[in-house]
């Protein structure tokens, strides 16, 4: 285990992360240049040890890209990531390999996340071998609620939920401190989703894990996230403690997302905000506020079309950030 960290210092910190995908240029870069896809466009956040940041946004908003660049599975365009105080993007390959043990990832699609030619046992033994660990396949399987007999099975013999458990066991095999859970339940049957969510919550408290929990709607992260960040077109548009954001969302986009979440209390009535249009292409983001073409805010003005709203603190609560010129106004 690592040295105890001073209280209040985050385990993971992301500073102004940017990832632009250059458009294909073809033959040795000849041909007409096209604008890059701004998948992630200046994202910053920090996650305290043992806590969970829920990262929420529509498809294509850049959530997966954030998770993967943080783990250096993809090269970032710019920005920095700190893990336990060390600069992740500056590590050489030897130190990076050591870091691989501390930061792990669970994937969205249980069908493509396991090598179809390897048994469950082989899949789980590989990381143990890479890092010369003494862990056991059977205890890993038991920890994620699978019978040790599964070690001999191939992925195609498993259900989606079982595969996802194997993917979780694989991530745990190297005893990480931080796990990126990239929509770990969105591909599963509704009946299985709750089981896997509960498993992840159990594992978090048992192993004192820190999560970046990615989801495309606010309902999934409600019970697991301590802090929620909402992404839109590569930017974080609102970030606040979970209780805050559900009770008093400040950004019109968050409000719209929240209005789509079924209310636990059936007597509560709420107005459903339906967003017009589709999410614009990140290759051609709108000028000004990226959300303005779809924004239903009554105060929407010329300013929204020209001036990019910074992510700023919205009173009264400190620690509640929103990127909207009119975050204080009711909708």
């Amino acid at each position: 285990m690592s040295a105890p960290r001073p209280a209040g210092q985050p385990l993971v910190e992301v500073r102004d992360l940017v990832k632009h995908y250059a458009a294909e240029r073809g033959w040795f870069g000849l041909g007409r240049p096209r604008p890059p896809v701004r998948a992630v466009d200046g994202v910053s956040f920090a996650i305290g040890g043992g806590s969970t940041l829920g990262l929420v946004g529509e498809s294509g908003s850049g959530k997966t890209t954030v998770g993967r660049t943080m783990l250096r599975l993809q090269e970032a365009t710019s920005g920095r990531v700190f893990f336990e105080g060390s600069d992740v993007f500056a590590l050489d390959s030897g130190r990076l390999r050591a870091l691989r043990r501390r930061m792990q990832i669970v994937f969205q699609d249980p069908y493509s996340s396991l090598n179809p030619r390897m048994t469950v046992g082989e899949t789980l033994r590989e990381p143990l071998k890479i890092h010369h660990l003494s862990g056991e396949v059977s205890s890993l399987l038991e920890e994620v609620g699978l019978d040790p007999a599964f070690a001999k099975r191939y992925p195609h013999e498993l259900s989606g939920g079982q595969r996802q458990r194997v993917g979780i066991a694989r991530a745990l095999s190297v005893e990480p401190r931080f796990v990126v859970c990239d929509e770990p339940v969105s591909a599963l049957d509704v009946s299985v989703q709750a089981q896997v969510l509960n498993l992840l919550a159990d594992l978090q408290s048992r192993r004192r894990l820190t999560y970046l929990f990615i989801a495309h709607d606010l309902a999934v992260v409600r019970h697991i996230a301590d802090t929620v960040a909402v992404m839109y077109l590569g930017k974080i548009v609102e970030r606040a403690p979970a209780a805050e954001i559900y009770a008093l969302p400040r950004h019109p986009y968050t409000r719209a997302l929240l209005s789509a979440v079924p209310e636990p209390d059936p007597r509560a009535t709420k107005r459903r905000i339906v967003l017009s249009g589709d999410i614009p292409s990140p290759a051609h983001p709108p000028p000004g506020c990226p959300f303005h073409p779809r924004c239903p805010h009554p105060k929407k003005s010329e300013r929204c079309r020209t001036e990019v709203p910074p992510l700023r603190e919205v009173p009264p609560q400190s620690g509640h950030l929103a990127a909207c010129h009119y975050a204080e106004q009711p909708m």
Binding site: L73, R100, Q104, N115, I130, V174
Partner: peptide, 17 residues
């Protein structure tokens, strides 16, 4: 681009592996 290839890289497997 398959997730199991990314997973292997995330676990620290080298290019040959």
């Amino acid at each position: 681009e398959r997730d199991y290839v990314l997973a292997a890289r995330a676990l620290g497997a080298g290019a040959g592996g």
